[in-house]
Amino acid sequence: MTNFGPFWRTARQSPPPSALDARRASRTTLIVLLGPALVIYAAFMIYPVLRTFWNSVHVIKPHNVEAFVGLANFKELLGNDFIFWKAVGNTAIFAIVATIADVLGGLLLALALFSGAPFVRTLRLIWFTPVLMSYVVVGVIWVWIYDYDWGLANVILRSLGLGSLEQSWLGDPRTALWSVMVTHIWKWLGFNMIIFLAALYALPGDVLGAAELDNCGWFAKLVHIIIPMLRPTIVNLTVLSFIGKMMIFDLVWIMTGGGPLWSTETVSTYVYKRAFDWNTFDLGYPSAIAVLWFLIILAFIVALTRLLRQRDRLEF
C-alpha cells in the first residue's frame, strides 16, 4: 500500500460515483431496453386506441372514404338503436349473474377441498382443466351438450323421466342466454376455486384453531371468521370477474352468434357484427359503441378502485 500518488491521480482512479450507482443506467441502455416495447406500443396500442376515438366521430367507408359526423353516431346509438340496448341488457345480466355465481361457486369448491377431503391435489387439477381450454373448444363441446336430439342435457332429462322439460337450449330465446352463461361459469369456476384455496391456506391457523376450541360450528366459522378474512380476495375476484364479463365475446360468438332474436347479443358481438357482418360497411358506428362501452368500463374500474381502495390490483 505504498501507492501515494498526486491527489488528482487517486481521484481519477476511482470512477465518479454516478457510474457506480447501480440505480442509474446510461441513455443507450435505456433506449436499447425500452425502445422495442415503446415502438410496438406506440404503433399497435396507442395509435389504434386514438384512431378508434377518431373513428367514433366519423363515418368510415371502405377505400378511405371518411366524413366527419360529430356526435351523430352516439346520438343514434343512445336514442334509436334498440339492438344496442338489448345487448347492454344482456351483457349486464351476464356480468352480474355470472360474476355472483363464479365467486360463490369458486368459494364453495375451495371450501370443499379445504375441509380436508381426500385426493385434494388430484381434484383441484381436474377442476382447473376447463380454465386452460379455449372458448372454441368449450363452446363446441357445449353446443353438443345442448343439442336437442342427442345432447347430454336432454338425454339426462329424458332418462330421469323429465322429458317434458327438454329444450332446444340454445335455440330458444328464453333459455339461450342462461345456457351460454352456464357454460361460461363452468369454464371459470376452477380459476376462482384456485385463488380462494390459496387464500384459505394463507389464513392464520391459530384463528381457525381457536374457533375449533370454542366449539364453533362450521357454518358459524364460515360466516364469522372465514368469509370476513377472505374479504380482500372476494372483492378482488368480483371486480376482476365483472370487468372480464363486460367484454364477453368469444363464447357467445361461437355458441349462438348473438341469436336467436338478439337474445344473447352482447355489446362486443354487436360491435363485431356492425363492423364486419352488416352491409353498412361503416367502421365509425361500431367504433362509437366500442368507445362508449370502454368509457363505461373505465368508470366502473375507477369507481370500484376508489370504493375498495385496491389500487394497481385490477386487470383483465
Binding site: L38, Y47, P48, M247, F249, L283, V291, I297, L298
Partner: peptide
C-alpha cells in the same frame, strides 16, 4: 413509461380491434 405500458391492463381488445384492422 410505467403508466403507458401498464395502461394496457385496462384497454380492452374491443377498443383497438377495429382500427387495428384498418392499420
Amino acid at each position: 413509461v410505467r403508466f403507458v405500458i401498464l395502461s394496457g391492463l385496462i384497454l380492452p381488445p374491443q377498443l383497438m380491434i377495429l382500427s387495428l384492422f384498418q392499420i
